[in-house]
Every structure is written in structure tokens, then in C-alpha cells.
Amino acid sequence: MSATLHHEPSPAQRARAAHRRRQTVLSVLIAAASTAAVGTLLAIAVTGAPGWNRVRESFLDPEIARDALPRVLTGLWLNVRLLVCCAIGALLLGLLIAVLRTLRGPVFFPIRALAAGYTYTFRGLPLIIVLYVLTLGVPGLRLQGMPPVLVLGGLALVLTYGGYLAEVFRAGIESVHPSQLAAARSLGLTYRQTMRHVVLPQAVRRVAPPLLNDVVALQKDVGLVSLAGPIDAVRAAQIATAQTFNYTPYIVAGVLFVLLAIPLIAVTDQVTLRAARRQSGG
């Protein structure tokens, strides 16, 4: 006997469906009403505040915003380029360190210890101190062929974020069940082949959401290279503010940063959602 695809719902099922529809409409109406109420109250509270006019002049001046925008955008372009380079560098470094930490056998002890020492040190060190040491201290050595400050600053970001990303990768590697390794080794794959074809593909897929989350955090921190001289979006806004005694350029930079983050965060959310669906068997 085969199951019929055409099914006439019973009165009981029709009543249940009608009730569910009414509940949905009601929920939407309540959500809309409460959002409108909260929004109105907030608007009244802010615009009705005694100092609102002063704040609007010094933070939301449209003319100053228009003047500052090109300069802030120029700075932002530096952020974007630095983000792309540093994200790639930090991901590669993190992956390398994570794999080195999984190597077994006494021969690899020094490598393992070095990799572990690296993640301990750079996750503990404040980024600003790494930046100062690399961009101000290292050039002081006056070595031949010293790279420009921007590269040194990028290196500081890569070193710091590489430490975090290595731990994320390591968590992913350790989450792959030992039976997967046994299966791969039983087929005659070497340790390296097992890592490359069986463990890492599964590990990276599993930790893609937290990896991307760290890249979103990196996006905000790349601006710190401005401490060593290069002018990023925030530094450009600061200069503009110093010239006009008006804080509007900061708001402009803030809005641009959020706009820049939206696509990255959207991708992260989507990857997370897809991973969750795959986990539940889809």
C-alpha cells in the first residue's frame, strides 16, 4: 500500500491551522506596535534632552561630514588593504602553528614547544605593545633592507591574530573523531595524507564560523597601525576633528566601519547557519 499524496484535512486539523494563522497575525501586530512605541520613546528622550542641540551640532553636522568623507574614505582604503593581507597571513600562520602542535614523536618536541610558546606569548601580549615593539623598536636597529612601517605593523597584527586563529584551528583538528584517523591509516594513508585529506577538511569546515568571527574583530584592529604613523580611517577622522573642533568625522568613520563589516558578518552568519544545518543532518 502506498501513502496518498492528496490528503483532505480533517475538521480538527483545519481548526488547528486556522488557530495557528490567527496567532501568527497577532504576533506580527504586537511586534510592530511595541517596536513603534520603543522607537518613539527613544526619539523623544534623545531629541528632548536639554543638551540635544549642542550634541547635534558637534556630532551630526552634515556639512562637516561631507568635507571629511573623502579623507576618511582614503584612510578606510588603507584599512581594507591591510585587512585582506593580514587576514590571509594570520589564517595561514594559524593553520601552520595548529598543525605543528599536533605533531607527535620526540623528534618534533622542539617544534611543538616552539609552537605552543608562540600561542601562549602572543595571545597574552597586548596588540598595542607588539605594534610598538615592531614599528618603533625594530626600525631602531637600523638594519639593511628594513621593510616600511606599514609592513611591520601588518606583521604585528598577523603575529597576534595568528595566535588566536591557531587555537581555533587546533580545536577543530581535535574535534575530528579518532575513528576517522583509524579509518584513514587503515587504508594506508600516511600521517601527512591523513591530515591533508581527512582531518583538515573536516576541521576547517567545523571552525569556519569562529574563524570568520576573528576576521571581523581583526577588521577593527587593523586601524591600530595608525599609532605608528600610517593614516587609517579613524586617524583621518581624528585629524579632521582636530581641524574643525567637531566630532562629526568620527561618526562618519564609525558608519563606514559598520557598512564594511556588514558583508563579512552576513557571510559569517550564513556559514554558521549552513554548518548547523549540516550538523542536524539536513
Binding site: S179, Q180, A183, P201
Partner: peptide, 10 residues
């Protein structure tokens, strides 16, 4: 061949 198959899910 293992009890829980151990196929590579990816």
C-alpha cells in the same frame, strides 16, 4: 572495516 563504518563525511 569498522563497526561504525567510519566513512569520511566530507
Amino acid at each position: 572495516v569498522f563497526q561504525s563504518y567510519n566513512l569520511f563525511p566530507h
